[in-house]
């Protein structure tokens, strides 16, 4: 017959106020951002007053104007051309830069840091802002759109691929150095082979992003479907807008499926 020891509850862990403090800060910022004086003046009033307006638009969106279809084909093709060209140029530019930005393939701390800082800055500006500035620089058309996408792509590919080079096994690279290879030879023969799957993977991912992004770049005049979106929006043709949205949906889903299939092959 053993007697049960009296049940002693362990003391509650300290620091339980911390999540509550975090929640309070979040609520405070939210209150400020919602307020009319300092914030964006959130009101259900406007929504309640105009919801009928929105409901009409949604109704129009639900009835696509199929007769509009032939006119959407050339911009759709241009969108895809922009995405493909930007992905290709972006990938070609990124490959050497990725080797430059990784510690194992570029031991020089200063040149590496300089490139990384530059790319961080490039990455923090969204593609549409690049496009709107570039349209003012080089004129309306597919070219500013492609340059904007390339800038955006290089930022992403170099970051992801150089990070994957850094987690690769350093052994083969040391072997290459021990065999008397120069850094250039080591990079070409060893690091590049190791980085290849990551590189192809990121390039496919960037192609998906580009297809999405290039559909709206035209809103600022950079070619593709966006030009058409802007046109039908000015005439309030929401039935035509809905057809364009449907096309974007189909293209994005198809590209995602194709690139997912290729990726499964690769792994």
């Amino acid at each position: 017959m053993s007697t049960l020891a009296p049940l002693v509850l362990p003391p509650k862990p300290r620091g339980r106020w911390k999540p509550w403090l975090g929640l309070a800060i979040v609520l405070l910022i939210t209150a400020v951002t919602l307020s009319p004086q300092w914030g964006i003046a959130f009101s259900f009033d406007a929504i309640a007053r105009n919801w009928q307006n929105g409901a009409d638009k949604v109704l129009a969106l639900l009835q696509p104007d199929w007769t509009f279809f032939p006119r959407t084909i050339p911009p759709l093709v241009e969108t895809l051309q922009m995405a493909v060209i930007a992905t290709f140029v972006g990938a070609v530019v990124s490959l050497p830069l990725s080797l430059w930005a990784a510690r194992l393939t570029n031991p020089n701390r200063y040149t590496r840091g300089a490139l990384k800082t530059l790319l961080n800055a490039v990455r923090s500006i969204p593609d549409l802002l690049y496009a709107s500035v570039l349209v003012a620089m080089v004129g309306v058309g597919a070219l500013p759109g492609i340059i904007a996408l390339v800038l955006f792509n290089v930022g992403i590919i170099v970051k992801m691929v150089s990070e994957s080079i850094e987690v690769n096994d350093a052994g083969p690279l040391e072997a290459g150095r021990a065999a008397g290879g120069t850094q250039l030879q080591i990079n070409r023969a060893i690091a590049l082979t190791d980085a290849w799957p990551a590189f192809v993977n990121q390039t496919l991912y960037v192609l998906e992003l580009n297809v999405r992004a290039s559909t709206v770049l035209g809103l600022v005049g950079a070619g593709g479907l966006g030009l058409l979106i802007d046109a039908v929006r000015t005439f309030y043709r929401y039935d035509q807008l809905s057809l364009i949205i449907l096309e974007i949906l189909v293209v994005v889903v198809v590209i995602d499926a194709v690139s997912a299939a290729i990726r499964r092959r690769l792994v």
Binding site: I47, N50, N53, G54, D56, V216, R233, Y238, I248, L249
Partner: peptide
């Protein structure tokens, strides 16, 4: 799959050209 700028264009008709639409 729909870019946010297109969603904003659809919401525009309810709340107008205000930051609320963006949010």
């Amino acid at each position: 799959a729909v870019p946010e700028i297109i969603i904003a264009i659809a919401i525009l008709s309810v709340t107008g050209l205000t930051p609320l639409t963006g949010a």
